[in-house]
């Protein structure tokens, strides 16, 4: 029981001091689970990150669930996950409730005008990073343009596109292996 509570507190702290995405929490996580508590080694933590990145869901949550499970099985996984989402729930609920009262303030409107442009810039910034990492092979570029064609042509939904891309990739991979045999 004390162990579970410790997991909750640990990931509550990580959630509270993480701004932005999953990678922003890596330094703090390393300090807590590698240096201080020695739950895993630095290499293991990095491996865990790559797994967290290619499994469904938010990376930070995936990493928390995994470490929680390693420490105290299913209960640990649940407590670690609740720990990491708790600061978000509390803070965002507060911010959202407060913000409702300021939506007609002139300066808040002006500030959000600037902030929205910044959000567009942030998204394009991520696109550049992802394109550099993920559009290296002809196969990837073809998949990318295939997806673009579906988005423009039939306005395919995000859910359907991901399922379709995964199925097509699986089929192509399977076909290639048969061919080699």
């Amino acid at each position: 029981m004390r162990n579970l509570w410790k997991l909750f507190r640990l990931f509550f702290k990580v959630g509270l001091f993480t701004f932005g995405g999953g990678y922003a929490m890596l330094p703090l996580l390393k300090a807590e689970v590698v240096d201080k508590r020695k739950y895993l080694s630095e290499e293991e933590l990095l491996d865990l990150y790559s797994i967290g990145q290619c499994t469904p869901g938010i990376i930070a949550v995936n990493v928390a669930t995994f470490i929680g499970y390693q420490q105290a099985k299913v209960k640990g996984a649940i407590m670690a996950t609740l720990g990491i989402i708790m600061p978000s729930i509390v803070i965002i609920t507060l911010v959202a409730s407060v913000l409702e009262h300021f939506t007609d303030n002139r300066y808040v409107i002006y500030a959000f005008y600037g902030i929205r442009i910044c959000v567009v810039a942030l998204i394009f910034n991520i696109i550049f990073d992802l394109a550099k990492k993920n559009l290296k092979s002809v196969y990837n570029i073809l998949m990318f343009f295939g997806a673009i064609a579906l988005l423009i042509g039939v306005n395919i939904s995000a859910v359907l596109l991901v399922v379709l891309a995964g199925s097509v990739a699986l089929a192509i991979g399977e076909f290639k292996r048969r061919l080699i045999k």
Binding site: G15, G21, I91
Partner: peptide, 8 residues
């Protein structure tokens, strides 16, 4: 704000 962006 603090917390993973997707959760927020």
């Amino acid at each position: 704000t603090p917390g993973p962006i997707g959760v927020n």
